[in-house]
């Protein structure tokens, strides 16, 4: 047990926790933005796969990691809008559109990889590039904190900036206000002249943009290749983090760190007698429990509200 505690409080653990949190955080922020506009984006998983494979293929062709990232982002946004078109314009249920996206992406990325390189399921013959890591000046000189915070892939810092960016956008800009209004009550938003469909397209586009970063982090930072279904449920974990974090960027960031913590912990636990399966289960169980507790509190609040309203009428 002592060795685990030492492991958890070691510098390496803090570093790997931030590393595994990065793709989850991007997905979770994507979930927050689309959910704020009233669309649950189940398709994050697929969007991440699409940007991941695009990043690898384009960076191998152009020999530039940044061009790979750019292409990955563009494709993720385009596919998010494609999904949005079916949902907003043609009336497909958003959840089903997301499931369709995941189905298309899960096989389509492997198919695209095969067409582009002849590789089956893993991009072993592509000389793809990796996005650079960043040494933070000054901070990297601080003991303990320095090695935890410094030396990460550049996208890890993007993710942390994105938390602030998404918060600022949603709560401090007129556009963000309109987007949230559409999610709260589309009819009222429509009655004051806000275009519901435009806002939803915007939200899904941003959601795809963020998921695109997450996918490229996986294939051009976390590891240096693309493999079949490499997201391994991170898009869904992102949705869970958003639910656990109360669909708020800050709460969601904390929830994502919690998921990252459990993920990193399960790697450390494997050397012990505690089965890693249990440790890996914790974040999901926590989400289910939190969901139940929140729903229950809301229900009792609503009941109280009704009772009060009844008394006033009487």
């Amino acid at each position: 047990m002592g060795s685990t505690l030492k492991g958890i409080f070691s510098v390496g653990f803090g570093y790997s926790m931030l590393r595994v949190t990065t793709p989850i955080l991007f997905a979770a922020l994507g979930a927050v933005v689309s959910e704020k506009a009233g669309a649950v984006n189940i398709g994050l998983e697929g969007l991440m796969l699409i940007s991941g494979v695009t990043g690898v293929i384009v960076s191998a062709w152009t020999q530039s990691a940044w061009l790979g990232l750019l292409a990955g982002l563009v494709l993720a946004v385009l596919f998010a809008l494609f999904m949005g078109y079916f949902h907003i314009k043609l009336g497909t249920d958003m959840v089903l559109a997301g499931i369709a996206m995941n189905v298309i992406a899960s096989g389509g990325t492997v198919f695209a990889l095969f067409v582009a390189s002849g590789d089956r399921g893993i991009s072993s013959s592509l000389a793809s590039k990796v996005l650079p890591t960043v040494e933070l000046p000054l901070i990297n000189k601080i003991p303990v904190i320095g090695p935890i915070l410094s030396g990460h892939n550049v996208l890890t810092y993007f993710a942390l900036l994105a938390v602030v960016g998404v918060w600022y956008f949603l709560y401090r800009t007129p556009l963000g206000l309109r987007l949230r209004a559409v999610g709260e009550s589309p009819d009222s938003a429509d009655s004051v002249g806000i275009s519901v469909s435009k806002m939803r397209f915007l939200a899904l586009g941003i959601s795809g943009f963020l998921a695109g970063f997450g996918g490229c982090h996986l294939s051009m930072g976390y590891v240096s290749w693309f493999s079949r279904d490499m997201t391994a449920g991170r898009g869904f974990i992102g949705l869970a983090a958003s639910a656990l974090g109360g669909v708020h960027p800050i709460g969601t960031a904390i929830a994502s760190l919690f998921f990252g913590f459990a993920d990193a912990l399960s790697n450390y636990m494997q050397s012990l007698s505690i089965p890693s399966e249990f440790v890996q289960m914790i974040p999901y169980l926590a989400t289910v429990a939190a969901l139940g507790v929140f729903a229950r509190r809301q229900m009792s609040r609503e009941r109280k509200g009704k009772k009060q309203a009844g008394r006033e009428v009487a």
Binding site: T92, A97, G107, F114
Partner: peptide, 22 residues
């Protein structure tokens, strides 16, 4: 042709069948 092509067919099928306006 690799088998994963079928995933694209499946996804498009879901989208079209569930699109109320289709």
């Amino acid at each position: 042709v690799s088998a994963e092509m079928v995933a694209i067919i499946q996804g498009i099928m879901i989208l079209l069948v569930t699109a109320q306006a289709f």
